[in-house]
């Protein structure tokens, strides 16, 4: 039986759109009895260190596109996914590449770089997925990746400074530094003055975050405009069934507008700017969720759980195997 390992605990986590998309895909392509979803949150299960991972009896496949390719090739379809040919299949792959290379950065911005979302939503989630002390390391890794990705498209990280990644709001930004020079020696003259100074600082911080969020929305619109053009006006982009690129798109949109997020700017913007697509998204999401409810979601077994003992075992395993057995590539 197939086992899909994803991020999550009792349900699939909104921090990983590809986990969600893979689950949606399997739930649409296969019968519920053919596979199970395991919310192991253990990246060591994957040969390339990323979730989702699909474990078959013989093979381990990771990443959304590979899972789709593998399952389509080896398992007969339940005829709920569009079978594409010619131009449509190329276009479908193009949209997936576009989402993974562009829209993905917006999801990362919403989950990690927006300080309100990161501090109050994303980071605390890891405490539910990983035991002590591993829950500290993993969000930092994702934060760093998100920071690098966002900066590559020109989305500067607000409040980037010492300890910013753990939610510390410093004033290391250039403008703040300039202002700080002027009022460096500012000493609160009274209780009232101190309160005002603090208020002004908070206002500035909110302004900086808003400015970045506006830039983020501009990019979001740019990317969505390109995608909407391909999706067209019908319920499904290619024929009368959902395609794999739409599943990935809806998974990303769901993560960006997840109900628990404190800052819902992108979700609200999506709803107001693209009302038709939002309507389609709600309808399709309800269908996909209904299919997903029929599937068993399990917790990881002791072997697969991301415990400290398993981590030590994994690292020791890598250290003490010979290079030839490790499949190392010599450069």
């Amino acid at each position: 039986m197939l086992e899909l390992h994803v991020w999550g605990d009792d349900s699939i986590s909104p921090i990983s759109p590809e986990s969600l998309a893979s689950a949606y895909f399997l739930a649409s392509h296969l019968a519920p009895a053919q596979f199970s979803i395991v919310t192991s949150s253990n990246t060591n299960l994957s040969p390339t260190g990323q979730l989702p991972v699909l474990r078959d009896d013989k093979r381990i496949v990771d990443g959304y596109t590979d899972i789709v390719a593998y399952v389509t090739q080896h398992y007969s379809a339940d005829a709920r996914i569009a079978e594409l040919t010619g131009e449509a299949t190329l276009l479908n792959d193009g949209v997936i590449a576009y989402i993974r290379d562009k829209l993905q950065y917006i999801t990362q911005f919403v989950l990690y770089i927006d300080s309100n979302n990161y501090t109050n939503f994303t980071r605390p989630l890891f405490q539910r997925y990983l035991p002590f002390p591993m829950m500290y390391n993993q969000p930092l890794k994702f934060y760093d990746a998100a920071e690098e990705a966002c900066e590559s498209i020109g989305l500067k990280v607000p409040n980037a400074g010492f300890l910013s990644h753990i939610g510390f709001v410093g004033d290391a930004r250039e403008e703040d530094m300039r202002e700080a020079d002027v009022g460096a020696d500012d000493v609160a003259l009274s209780q009232l003055h101190a309160t005002q100074m603090l208020k002004r600082k908070e206002e500035k911080s909110v302004l900086a975050n808003t400015a970045q969020m506006l830039r983020c929305l501009r990019f979001f619109k740019e990317y969505m405009d390109d995608i909407v053009l391909i999706l067209g006006a019908e319920k499904y982009a290619f024929g009368d069934k959902i395609s794999t690129c739409e599943i990935l798109l809806y998974a990303h949109l769901e993560c960006m507008s997840f109900p628990g997020l404190p800052n819902q700017a992108v979700g609200t913007y999506f709803e107001e700017k693209y009302p038709e697509l939002h309507q389609r998204f709600v309808v399709v999401k309800t269908e996909l969720d209904a299919r997903l409810r029929a599937v068993v979601v399990e917790r990881a077994s002791d072997e697969d759980a991301p415990t400290l003992v398993n981590e030590v075992r994994f690292v020791a395993g890598r250290l003490f195997t010979k290079p030839s057995a490790r499949n190392e590539v010599v450069l």
């Binding site: 994957s46 190392e328 590539v329």
Partner: peptide
């Protein structure tokens, strides 16, 4: 030692490109 399977990841990238080129 790398924490991941280098050969597999290299093969994956080439396979993805192959699929795209075929299409």
């Amino acid at each position: 030692p790398a924490r991941f399977d280098v050969q597999m990841e290299v093969a994956q990238v080439v396979e993805h490109a192959d699929r795209a080129l075929a299409k």
